[in-house]
Design a protein around this nucleic acid. Structure first.
Length: 581
DNA sequence: CGGACAAGCTGA
DNA sequence: CAGCTTGTCCGG
């Protein structure tokens, strides 16, 4: 090493460039530059920001090094940088966007002092044993929590261990739980805003970004509502906060605790231990769920308005939320004779009519005949949200407000009855009843996670209406009343649903029994071409949108193949664990 | 990514 | 052939 100063390796914060460059640190900053520091430097004629990812490196021969021009801020520590590197490989993306997630919102030149000694209240007696057990051992524990259970005791149990991260699906929930913990005497840092506070010690809590929080010494990772889709980033790399939180805990030898009323098949597969409430406690926390068979419904009105729906509208005095997910897509077909939906052979997907034939999303074809009764007269069920709103208004004899995803929670109307897509479930805090007008759209959506996502909607509804003892009620209108999701919801038994769902996934080698990546963009075909005859990789597609699906035995195998396969030039899009595949 | 530079296209 | 677009390369 030369006398001129230390040499550091820097990852520039430039999207589209995933390369590290070496720079000299001027002597005056020698002490303040360490791994993770945010710096500025000249790169190819422009001044850019970057992260120091290694110090005291041997630069390549024959390159004249430039100097760092500024030390801007403290940043992620070595542990977080290592996780970002791991995650970039795992989700086949670049490191820079992950480090950005792991960096403070505003520049930090010094950490505040750490928390003093603290005493937290003991968790309630009925949970104390479970909490002590769960947080007393490393590894992954899945805790199935009743949908209306208070989650705060689990947070207390974690915080008692010292520093750690807590991930929630929304910032709102993070603020709520974080506030509770702070009032109980915990040291709490909201991910992003309180970056420096968290780095100095305590509990870092936030939405999925909290998975990237810097902590002094990680003693736990907690994921709240593990089933919630919002824990996964939708842009590339499509990292999942659950998986990041688990990996961080694993590396620190700390417990990773995943809480959910309906844990995903992935969580259950990753779990070393599963804890479930007693059947009676779980059942009591669920609202009353009523499944209404609409095979006898009037197709002219989309079969959307059952007698049971009318009864619910009239029997409650408080808010009723009606959910109707109908975005584009071709209309569902139902048999005019028996009312059965036209579904694929395995009953998992809807079929549509193309050139006088029935066609399923996987390419399955058969003539225009009902598989249930042999009837040849099929009817289209189509009714959009705005038409449904009008009809509902006429039926209820009172105003009905439409809530779209563009409407802010604060602007939701005063009307007693609301109708909207699933977004309405996130815009309202409570209701007497939630009615899913046409749940088949969710159950039979052309995605392998459709069942899981449908269950997640029911959980959300269960929270809005509260437990059965308080009169909480969910009405689900469907033409597939025997679907495993509905059986699980009806008996307030997400455990049985989870077993069935996992068995199906295993039979089809879908995640978590295998890993998927979606390959898109113009060069997709060239990219998958060398993989076609490999035994450890299945190439599915191309689908009609030109995308391919790759399947490997696990995420590690998939990541390695994606990293080793040469990238043809052009804009290739790779989405690992695609949320909508 | 975005600047540099080269190769290709256009128009009077 | 100047002037502009499009493509390819590369950064310490």
């Amino acid at each position: 090493m030369s006398d001129a100063g230390r040499i550091v390796r820097v990852l520039p914060d430039v999207s589209g460039l995933d390369k590290r460059f070496d720079y000299v640190v001027p002597a005056r900053w020698a002490e303040s530059v360490d791994v993770g520091a945010l710096v500025r430097m000249d790169l190819h004629g422009r001044r850019v920001a970057g992260w120091v990812v290694e110090v005291d490196v041997d630069p390549p021969a024959g390159v004249e090094l430039r100097e760092i021009t500024k030390v801007s801020s403290l940043g992620p520590d070595q542990a977080v940088i290592d996780i970002a590197t791991w995650a970039a490989h795992r989700w086949s993306g670049r490191v820079a966007p992950l480090l950005k997630m792991a960096s403070p919102d505003t520049m930090v030149d010094q950490l505040p002092s750490g928390p003093g000694p603290r005493t937290l209240p003991a968790p309630p007696a009925d949970l104390a044993n479970d909490i002590a057990e769960v947080f007393g051992r490393p590894g992954v524990t899945v805790v199935r929590t009743p949908p209306n259970a208070d989650l705060f005791p689990w947070l207390l149990g974690a915080a008692a261990l010292g520093d750690g991260i807590v991930v929630t699906p929304s910032i709102g929930m993070a603020r709520f739980l974080g506030g509770q913990l702070r009032r109980a005497g915990g040291r709490v840092a909201l991910a992003g805003r309180d970056w420096a506070l968290g780095a100095a010690g305590g509990t870092v809590i936030g939405a999925r970004k909290a998975a990237w929080g810097r902590v002094r010494q990680l003693a736990y990772s907690v994921v709240i509502d593990e089933h919630d889709e919002r824990l996964q980033e939708e842009r590339n790399p499509t990292w999942h906060a659950r998986d990041v939180a688990i990996e961080r805990a694993r590396r620190a030898g700390a417990p990773a605790v995943l809480l959910s009323p309906a844990p995903s098949p992935v969580a259950l597969r990753l779990a070393d231990h599963v804890i479930a409430p007693s059947r009676s406690a779980e059942r009591a926390s669920w609202p009353i769920v009523e499944v209404v068979d609409r095979r006898d419904g009037d197709p002219a009105r989309g079969g959307l308005f059952s007698d049971e729906l009318v009864r619910v509208l009239r029997s409650t005095t408080n808010r009723v939320i009606c959910v109707l997910n109908r975005k584009g897509r071709s209309p569902m077909l139902a048999c005019a004779g028996c009312g059965e939906l036209v579904r694929t052979h395995d009953g998992e997907r809807l079929m549509s009519e193309v050139d006088g034939e029935l066609v399923g999303p996987g390419g399955e074809r058969r003539p225009l005949v009902c598989a249930n009764c042999g009837g040849t007269k099929l009817k289209r069920l189509r009714l959009g949200v705005s038409r449904a709103r009008e009809e509902l208004e006429a039926l209820a004899g009172e105003p009905v407000a439409e809530v779209t995803s563009e409407v802010d929670a604060a602007d939701v109307g005063r009307e007693r009855i609301l109708i909207g897509t699933e977004a309405v479930l996130h815009r309202v805090n409570n209701a007497d009843a939630v009615v899913f007008l046409d749940f088949d759209q969710e159950l039979l959506a052309p995605r392998y996670r459709a069942g899981e996502q449908a269950m997640s909607l029911i959980v959300q509804a269960a929270r809005l209406v509260g437990p059965r003892a308080g009169g909480g009620r969910i009405l689900i209108q469907t033409r597939t009343p025997d679907h495993r999701v509905l059986r699980g919801a009806l008996s307030a038994d997400p455990g049985s649903f989870a077993s069935e769902e996992s068995a199906l996934r295993e039979a089809m080698s879908f995640p978590p029994f295998g890993a998927l990546a979606e390959i898109g963009g113009p060069p997709a075909g060239d990219f998958v071409e060398p993989l076609l005859d490999r035994l450890d990789i299945n190439v599915l597609g191309p689908r009609d949108d030109g995308r391919y699906l790759l399947r490997a035995d696990g995420p590690d195998e998939l990541a390695t193949v994606l990293a080793e396969t040469p990238r043809p030039k052009g804009r290739l899009r790779v989405a690992v664990d695609p949320p909508r595949a």
